[in-house]
Amino acid sequence: MAQCVTPELQAWIVQQARAGCTPESVLQAMLKAGWQESVALDAMEHALQTYLGAAEAPAAARPYLDLSASPRAIDLGDRVVTVHVSLRRPRLAVLGGLLSDDECEALIQAAEPRLKRSRTVQISTGGEELSADRTSDGMFFRRGESPLVQRIEARISRLVHWPVENAEGLQVLRYRPGTEYKPHYDYFDPCAPGTARILERGGQRVATVLIYLNEPLRGGGTTFPDVGLEVMPQRGHAVFFAYDRPEPSTQTLHGGARVLAGEKWVATKWLREREFTA
């Protein structure tokens, strides 16, 4: 049976938000009351946008893009970013021109001498390990390491309404032909024994900004299997996706498809709940 979202329910959601309740606690209360999760999430998003305004409600809890007026472009002051695709679930947008060609090339040149085989989080200890699921080479810039990195970090912060310090350092990855990153989630598994150690440095990851620095000849798209979406790399373009809780129901399972010809270069910015400490 279809569940109907009433004005009374929306008003109740707003009351909880104004009282300081977290989105997760409101969602759990609705689930216990018998609401379907998809209906509850839609009701929460609609209520907060309608009653509080899209620019007010999400900012207090999670990074977000203000797409409430269906803009074709977002002016970030130093650059105008175009909006190509927007999804509500997962909360995802494909953006054009986040970086200029010169900025992309400068990042590649700065990163290349420091590349090493990419590692993944070791879930049992909170450390790192090599994984057959991830066969790229990568490196991290320290937050604010150079004027170029500072400019990009400040631009991302304005884009998603999230403090620069609430993010990990910018990571640059190179995928050669035959390399890939199999589908995975960016958040840390709450049930894994090493997660508590990881969260000490800034809490959970809550959103990802993935930027394409070049265009491979074939392959190398970013796939979202839960929704049947594949984003093909285009230099300077980016994919933003957010996950308001560390659960598969966010539908943020994603992967880097195998590069079939040429190289793929990407930069990734992971956003945390709190200030991230190196």
Results as ranks from 00 to 15, higher is better:
Gly256Asn: 06
Lys116Pro: 02
Arg119Tyr: 12
Arg79Val: 09
Ser68Asn: 08
Cys104His: 04
Ala257Thr: 13
Lys182Cys: 08
His237Trp: 12
Gly20His: 04
Asp102Ala: 15
Gly178Val: 12
Pro193His: 02
Gly96Asp: 07
Leu31Glu: 14
Ala19Ile: 09
Leu159Lys: 00
Leu31Gln: 11
Arg272Asn: 02
Val14Asn: 06
Thr208Arg: 15
Met1Pro: 09
Ile123Met: 11
Met1Gly: 04
Met139Asp: 03
Thr208Phe: 14
Val94Leu: 14
Gly20Glu: 10
Pro23Val: 01
Glu145Thr: 06
Glu145Asn: 07
Thr223Ala: 12
Gly127Lys: 15
Val26Asp: 03
Thr22Ser: 15
Ile156Pro: 03
Arg114Asp: 14
Pro193Gln: 01
Leu199Lys: 03
Gly219Ala: 06
Phe240Leu: 01
Glu153Ser: 08
Arg174Trp: 05
Ala132Tyr: 12
Thr223Lys: 00
Ser70Lys: 15
Arg258Tyr: 03
Tyr64Cys: 01
Arg258Pro: 13
Ala69Thr: 08
Gly97Ser: 07
Arg79Asn: 11
His237Tyr: 08
Glu45Ala: 14
Leu99Asn: 04
Ser124Cys: 03
Tyr181Cys: 14
Ser100Ile: 06
Gly194Pro: 05
Phe224Thr: 02
Gln150Glu: 12
Val81Asn: 05
Gly255Trp: 00
Tyr181Pro: 11
Thr120Tyr: 04
Glu273Cys: 05
Glu24Leu: 15
His46Glu: 15
Leu253Lys: 05
Val94Arg: 05
Phe188Ile: 05
Glu8Cys: 13
Glu24His: 14
Arg114Asn: 12
Leu159Pro: 02
Gly221His: 01
Tyr64Ala: 02
Tyr64Val: 00
Leu229Gly: 05
Thr120Ser: 10
Leu31Asn: 11
Val160Tyr: 04
Leu9Glu: 13
Arg119Asp: 10
Arg272Gly: 01
Gly228Pro: 01
Gly255Ser: 05
Gly221Ser: 10
Leu76Arg: 04
Val164Trp: 09
Ile74Cys: 02
Gln204Cys: 09
Met232Trp: 11
Arg272Phe: 00
Ala278Phe: 15
Glu37Asp: 11
Arg274Tyr: 08
Asp102His: 14
Ser118Trp: 02
Arg245Ile: 00
Arg79Glu: 10
Glu247Lys: 10
Gly228Ser: 05
Pro163Leu: 09
Glu273Asn: 03
Glu128Gly: 00
Thr135Arg: 12
Val83Leu: 10
Met30Leu: 15
Leu253His: 04
Arg218Glu: 15
Ala207Arg: 01
Leu98Asp: 00
Gln36His: 12
Glu129Arg: 15
Glu215Pro: 02
Val39Ala: 15
Leu27Asn: 05
Leu229Met: 10
Ile108Pro: 06
Glu145Cys: 08
